[in-house]
Every structure is written in C-alpha cells, then in structure tokens.
C-alpha cells in the first residue's frame, strides 16, 4: 500500500497531540516541549527540549514520538534534544493554563522570580475554591515542575506549576 506523503504541518500536529504522562490534560505541543520538525530526504528529525534537565518524561516522549510517527507512516525518525533556547513556563499558552487550572493544578503566575533568595513566596490562588489564603508547603512537588501548596480556606492541598 502506498501512503500519501505526509506534510510537515500534518506530522507536527499529530506529534503535538502526545499527552504529558504526569499532566495528561496538556500535550507536548501545548507545553512547548516539541520545538520543530525537520523534513529531510531520508529521515524526519523531531526536535524537543526538556522542561527540567532531569525530566524523566523525556524518554517516554521519545518512545511515543517514534510510535506515533510510525502509525502515520513515517519510519525514519531521529530525535534531537536541544537545550537552547531554554524552556520556560512563559511558553505555556493561556488556553493551556486554563486547562491546568480545571485539572486542579494552579498555573504558573508571571515570570521567574528575580529576588529568588530572600523574596516572599508568591501568593497563589487555590485552583479549586480560588481563595488567596494559601500557603507554600514545599518548593518541590511530585514532579520537578511543581511546588506543593495548601489552601487554608478549603483545607485542600494542591500543586502549583512553578515559574522557570
């Protein structure tokens, strides 16, 4: 069977749909992990960037990209991991931020804090009851990209996608 040749945009859109294993409401396209696709004569190069240096989901993404591409009829795929430009939470779109909030994770607020050493932790609204009466429990949550907060209003713990 001869498959119709897939265009760069079509392939990009398919790969961009791969969900994050830890935050399944977001895809690698929405997170900004998927940077580019290069169409070569003999292969396709998929360019990705990690959110954090040690992000364990990268291996999962690589496997998913290969299998999704194969399903789309693209067999020769090479994955290139780049570190520059540096991934930042600023790349997460407003729509994606809304999805995070609906999922129960407080989305990143503003940009990375400059007074990082002695500055007060940011006031983060509870994603469930929207109260500002919250408290930072730990800068490090269940994954590198999240911090742990507690809502004193509804007494629920919640995660905050921290700015980087």
């Amino acid at each position: 069977m001869v498959k119709k040749t897939i265009t760069k945009d079509e392939l990009f859109n398919i790969i961009a749909q791969i969900p994050d294993p830890e935050i399944p409401v977001l895809s690698i396209g929405e997170l900004g992990v998927l940077r580019n696709i290069e169409m070569h004569q003999d292969k396709v190069v998929v360019v990705i960037t990690p959110t954090y240096s040690g992000c364990p989901a990268m291996k999962f993404f690589e496997q998913e990209i290969l299998s999704v591409a194969k399903e789309a009829g693209v067999n020769y795929v090479e994955i290139k991991t780049i570190y520059s430009p540096v991934w930042t939470t600023d790349w997460i779109s407003d729509t994606a931020k809304m999805k995070l909030k609906e999922y129960g994770i407080a989305p990143p607020q503003g940009t990375s804090d400059k007074s990082f050493l002695f500055g007060q932790p940011k006031k983060i609204n509870c994603p469930k009851c929207h109260s500002e009466n919250t408290e930072l429990k730990s800068q490090f949550g269940s994954t590198s990209c999240k911090a742990l907060y507690f809502c004193k209003q509804c007494t629920e713990p919640f995660e905050y996608f921290k700015c980087i």
């Binding site: 954090y52 240096s53 040690g54 730990s138 490090f140 949550g141 994954t143 590198s144």
Partner: peptide, 20 residues
C-alpha cells in the same frame, strides 16, 4: 515527606545536568 520529595527532585536535576 516534603523534604524527601525536595531532595530527590534536586538529585534528579543534578542527574539531568550530569547526563548532558
């Protein structure tokens, strides 16, 4: 528990940097 998560998160970042 929070510290367990924090220390292992830091270890993971360091491992990622080492790997690169």
């Amino acid at each position: 528990l929070e510290e367990d998560l924090a220390i292992t998160n830091i270890a993971l970042d360091k491992l990622g940097q080492a790997r690169f």
